[in-house]
Amino acid sequence: MTTPLIHARPVERRQVAALPWRHGPDGIEIMLVTSRETRRWVTPKGGRMTGLSDAESAAQEALEEAGIEGVVGDAPLGTFRYLKILKRRAPRWCVVAVHALEVRVEHETWHEQAERERVWISRDEAVRRVDEPELKALIAAFEGQALTARAR
């Protein structure tokens, strides 16, 4: 008698992201940054940080990757999945909780400045530039409202 194969779903890595935004002259503007290895346009994101809430972790990623600070929403806007592709390791699925970050401070220099580009663009252009369909939908639906938020 053979044992049936059990197909376990691979463990997805949980991450957090900031959706940096501001009111521009023509409406909502979104900041995107380039990823370090593939140079795709993405939102600042990374792993959850010990001792910080998910919202605080997202704000910290925005500071490190884009040199921005502001008011971050406590509740996520939603989540998206993407396949993280690294040069020296196997691809891995990640699930990312996205928190709105109304940008109040934009530093001229920041930690990952030499590794990334950052750009302010319209919401429609941000939707065109990101690759992940679920992130496109979150950005397209975003109206710039801050729910329960904290300064970070």
Rank of each mutant, 00 (worst) to 15 (best):
V103Q: 07
R129N: 06
L86S: 09
A90I: 04
E102M: 09
E106N: 03
H99W: 14
L86E: 15
W120S: 04
V105Y: 13
V103N: 07
T109L: 04
V105R: 14
W120I: 01
H99A: 10
E106M: 02
V96F: 09
S122P: 01
A114F: 08
H107L: 12
K87G: 08
R89S: 12
R92Y: 12
H99G: 12
E115Y: 10
A100C: 07
V105S: 11
R123K: 06
T109I: 02
V103E: 11
V105F: 14
W93S: 08
W110C: 03
E112D: 15
H111N: 10
V98R: 01
R118L: 13
K87L: 11
R128F: 02
K87A: 08
R128M: 06
R123E: 09
W93F: 09
R88Y: 14
R123I: 00
A126R: 00
I121M: 13
R92F: 06
R116S: 03
L86N: 13
E125A: 02
V127L: 02
W93L: 07
R92H: 14
E125S: 01
P91R: 02
V119G: 09
V103A: 10
R104P: 04
R129A: 03
P91N: 06
S122C: 01
R88V: 07
D124A: 00
E106W: 03
K87P: 05
E115K: 10
R89H: 11
E106D: 14
V103I: 13
H111A: 07
A126L: 00
A126P: 00
E112R: 02
S122F: 01
W120Y: 12
V98D: 12
R116G: 00
Q113K: 11
D124S: 00
A126F: 01
A90G: 06
I85W: 05
W120D: 08
L101T: 13
R88C: 09
P91F: 04
L86V: 11
A97P: 06
V119Y: 11
V119Q: 14
R123D: 06
A90V: 07
R89V: 06
Q113I: 14
C94I: 08
V95N: 14
I121D: 05
R116Q: 00
E108D: 15
R88E: 15
H111M: 13
A100L: 11
H107A: 11
L86C: 11
V105P: 05
E112T: 02
E112S: 09
W93D: 12
L86Y: 12
R118Y: 08
Q113F: 08
R128G: 03
L86I: 09
E115I: 12
E125T: 01
K87Q: 15
C94H: 10
E102F: 12
